[in-house]
């Protein structure tokens, strides 16, 4: 639909700079190895036996393996499944709503001729500096809104991140003014301009912010800690945190305590691994759309 105003053309970066390319690869490969190694160790440690962890610490390839950690975590699988779906629901809803609201707002404050852009930027940024504390937020959400044990408490308070909004503002400001003017001449409303011109041109930025928002929701644990008591509403991260925490409290349970003990360390790693899986997949999905700049046809002499 936006083809009226812009045309996609194959990106054509230069063919020169062979040396620079090799330097780039030369620098990036070691850095990537350093980034991958800890994740690998994390995942593999979740299947390492207690003995090997105790004797040799973290190894790239453990001397002994054990599925105990996962056996412990999945002892009650219906909980894990349930919390997975809670987390997915919260993340999807939060990301869509959050990115939508943030992008709209960012567009508004990116418009140079908008009277309130400085004021609203300040309005947003100020919240980064001052914080009322957990107590006030709790009073608001629990006593005033009555959102305890309600998924809304996990989603709504976190929708807007000032950092993401201001990032989007910067990205939006790079859109050439002439494009927006041309849309205006055609009689488009501000919303139309946003939806049809600015948004498509800013896909990498919006996807980045979407990714960050998604990660934030997926990893968040504090909201659940404060506002959710009912087990069937626990998001994944919180359930896993609770599981590991319980393991480290002295059971003092007498002779009936049966079964082998999973290494608490392996348990922690297992918990981290499980939480990571959806992130990897969605990351790959987002990557597909992270494409090089769209050529602007029809606009010359900018």
């Amino acid at each position: 639909m936006y083809e009226e105003w812009i045309t996609k053309m194959p990106s054509s970066r230069s063919q020169s700079g062979g040396a620079v390319t090799w330097i780039s690869i030369g620098v990036l490969v070691p850095i990537c190895i350093l980034s991958v190694l800890p994740i690998w160790i994390l995942i593999i440690s979740s299947v390492a036996s207690t003995e090997s962890l105790a004797s040799f610490g973290f190894q790239i390839f453990p001397s002994e393996f054990s599925w105990e950690a996962y056996r412990k975590i999945f002892a009650q699988p219906d909980f894990i499944v349930r919390s997975y779906s809670v987390s997915i629901a919260v993340t999807v809803a939060g990301t869509l709503a959050g990115v939508a609201a943030s992008a709209l707002f960012a567009y508004v404050i990116s418009r140079q001729n908008f009277g309130g852009s400085n004021f609203l930027s300040f309005f947003l940024f100020f919240t980064l500096l001052f914080n009322g504390g957990t107590l006030s937020s709790y009073l608001l959400i629990s006593n005033f809104l009555h959102w305890k044990n309600n998924l809304l408490s996990l989603i709504v308070p976190l929708l807007i991140s000032p950092f993401n909004v201001l990032l989007l503002r910067s990205y939006f400001r790079t859109i050439p003014l002439s494009l927006i003017e041309s849309a205006r001449i055609d009689g488009a409303s501000e919303f139309r301009t946003f939806r049809s011109i600015v948004l498509p041109l800013s896909m990498p930025a919006v996807l980045t912010v979407g990714l960050f928002t998604m990660l934030m929701y997926w990893n968040d644990m504090t909201q659940a800690l404060l506002y959710i008591d009912q087990q069937y509403l626990y998001p994944l991260q919180y359930l896993l945190y609770k599981l590991t925490f319980n393991q480290s409290i002295i059971p003092q349970s007498g002779e009936q305590y049966t079964g082998t003990i999973a290494s608490p360390l392996a348990l922690r790693m297992g918990m981290a691994t499980i939480a990571l899986i959806p992130i990897f997949f969605s990351f790959l999905a987002v990557q597909k759309h992270f494409v090089r700049g769209i050529m602007l046809g029809g606009i010359k002499g900018d």
């Binding site: 567009y107 908008f114 309130g116 609203l120 009322g132 709504v156």
Partner: peptide, 29 residues
Amino acid sequence: YQLQLWLMALPCILLVFLFNYVPMGGIIL
């Protein structure tokens, strides 16, 4: 156009006001 822009910004403004500015009263503590 200005009105349209304010309207577009409204959801965010309300959210930030409710969840960030209202609890700021806690600073008095």
